[in-house]
């Protein structure tokens, strides 16, 4: 019984079947206010997001704060109920073919705040063994599994298993969080800013660990981050989000060398140069990201875009192919869109 529960999930659809298919995922948060607590506004946190995650790849999701990348992560594992949209895990639709509980066997998540994501009253061992226990694994098996996982993330169980979160450093806590996420033997790990709160030297340790775990356990990653350097290092493909929508998605080389969406280009040129002789001389875009409560019309980026034209203010561009499995949502890339830089239809 217990051994069966801890065994990795079988591959259903074969290697060509994407592990995760997201179709038109949408979540609008109501803003309550006034005397009667009525809905006065809505935040379009995630607005019609569609993408696939292939088996064994790492998909990086980047964007600025409020772009909906963390909400997307939580929607994928149903910590938030989507308003609309479909999630298929290995070809099986969540809600019809498989239950949310079954989805969560295959998909687990690591959170940014390593302290808040561990129960301060539980030992490390109990935190890791919690998942297997609630799935009916016998106590000793769950504890053995926890020790095994601690070893895998580079922490000697003899030393750490009985410790409490506040006795560990940030990097060690994040290792524990990774071990905890692996306790149910998932196939897909959603990493929500897993290294953002860590110091650089510790960040590198955790990134190495993630790369090693992925190779040895055959995992698939969704890596959410605002740090373009880290995303470039770890991802195979990159998805750029802006105000709840996909701005651009493509292989990491194409995104970093041949970005087609002006927002992606702005993000990339906003990265500090690391070269004292070639300091950034001009900010790529002016102003702050707009407030997601009252998003602009048409293309959400038109308020900050140097190439914005009339069409951008009125019509939202759809994702269009701009290269080998590379798509961008920009009127300049859509033939016949009416933008002066677009090809004629």
């Amino acid at each position: 019984m217990s051994a069966e529960l801890l065994a990795p999930l079988p591959d259903v659809g074969g290697p060509a079947q994407p592990l995760l298919e997201i179709r038109n995922l949408t979540k609008h948060f109501p803003i309550k206010g006034g005397m009667l607590n009525r809905t006065v506004a809505r935040v379009n946190a995630v607005d019609g997001v569609t993408f696939d995650v292939a088996k064994g790849e790492t998909l990086g999701i980047v964007g600025e704060s409020g772009c909906g990348k963390s909400t997307t992560a939580r929607l994928l594992i149903r910590l938030i109920e989507p308003d609309q949209g479909e999630v298929r895990f290995d070809g099986q639709t969540v809600g019809t073919d498989i239950s949310v509980a079954e989805l969560r066997r295959g998909v687990q998540m690591v959170f940014q705040d390593s302290f808040a994501s561990l129960n301060p009253r539980l030992t490390i061992e109990d935190s890791i063994a919690f998942g297997p226990r609630v799935r009916g694994v016998a106590n000793t098996d769950a504890v053995n599994k926890a020790h095994d996982l601690l070893r895998r993330v580079g922490m000697a169980p003899e030393q750490y298993a009985r410790r409490y979160p506040h006795e560990l450093s940030g990097g060690q806590r994040q290792r524990v969080n990774i071990a905890r996420a692996l306790a149910l033997a998932p196939r897909l790990l959603i990493l929500d800013e897993p290294v953002s709160a860590l110091d650089k030297s510790v960040e590198a340790q955790v990134l190495n660990l993630l790369v090693d775990l992925k190779a040895s356990l055959g995992l698939t990653y969704i890596f959410v981050s605002h740090d373009l350097n880290v995303v470039q290092y770890i991802s195979d493909r990159v998805l750029v989000m802006y105000l709840g929508r996909v701005a651009e998605i493509g292989p990491v080389e194409s995104i970093y060398t041949d970005a087609r969406h002006p927002y992606t280009r702005a993000l990339l040129s906003a990265m500090p140069s690391m070269d004292p002789d070639r300091r950034t001389q001009e900010a790529p875009i002016a102003g702050d990201p707009p407030n997601p409560i009252n998003p602009p019309s048409g293309c959400l980026f038109h308020t900050r875009c140097p190439f914005a034209e009339a069409v951008c203010k009125t019509t939202a561009p759809a994702l269009a192919p701009v290269g080998e499995s590379h798509n961008a949502a920009c009127h300049m890339e859509i033939a016949g869109s009416g933008h002066s830089r677009a090809a004629r239809a």
């Binding site: 190495n208 350097n229 470039q232 690391m274």
Partner: peptide, 24 residues
Amino acid sequence: RGLLASTVHGAMRGKRLDAIPGAP
């Protein structure tokens, strides 16, 4: 040198990061 080596940038893709072991 360790700090520079463990600061991730694009050129390091596919290579193992030369992390400083341990914690301060």
